[in-house]
Amino acid sequence: MRSTFLTLLFSGVLAISSAFAQDKYFTKNGQVSFFSSTPMENIEASNNNATSVIDAKTGKMEFAILMKAFKFEKALMEEHFNENYVESGKYPKATFAGNITNLSGVDFSKNGTYKVNVKGKMTIHGVTKDVEAPGTITVENGKVKANSVFNVAPEDYKIEIPKLVREKIAKEIKVTVNMDYQALKS
């Protein structure tokens, strides 16, 4: 009888912890933009539909970005981006899955800005690379924000740039990520 009670208690505790734990945060309107700067031309695009989930308990982070949702100032740039460079018909999403390596330095229950380091795998154009980038996590009254700026080299992801336009597209493209997370209720 005692063991039955213990099992019941155990399962009860587990059920509660998974139902009420406020340790996951998500967004569907994350902002990701990139900027390519050369003496010939500046190219800028932004995407306000990035999705991301962050697990405060394990430090796991995941991102998915629909490539077609990047908006450019020139329609032709957008077409070329999708058609020729990232081939969004074939590779519709860019993803990142990784971990906060210094999770112990972040207290999700306390207001503050925390410097973090994120390490993981990024997939663009069907090519997966190990990447590492610095960022900050801001906790403000239960709300979690994250941002990061890092560089991506198109070459690393087998995105070919023809000779004719090589002077117009930077070797390293600056990517800015701004996420406004909400608590995930499951």
């Binding site: 399962s11 587990l14 059920a15 998974s18 996951k24 998500f26 569907k28 999705t51 991301s52 989930v53 962050i54 697990d55 394990t58 796991k60 982070m61 995941e62 998915a64 899955a97 995930l184 499951s186």
Partner: peptide, 18 residues
């Protein structure tokens, strides 16, 4: 009771799939 939380660890994004 444990199962779903185990799966969730594997793919966080599936939690918010549209």
């Amino acid at each position: 009771a444990v199962l779903p939380t185990v799966f969730a660890q594997d793919d966080l994004l599936s939690l918010i799939e549209d």
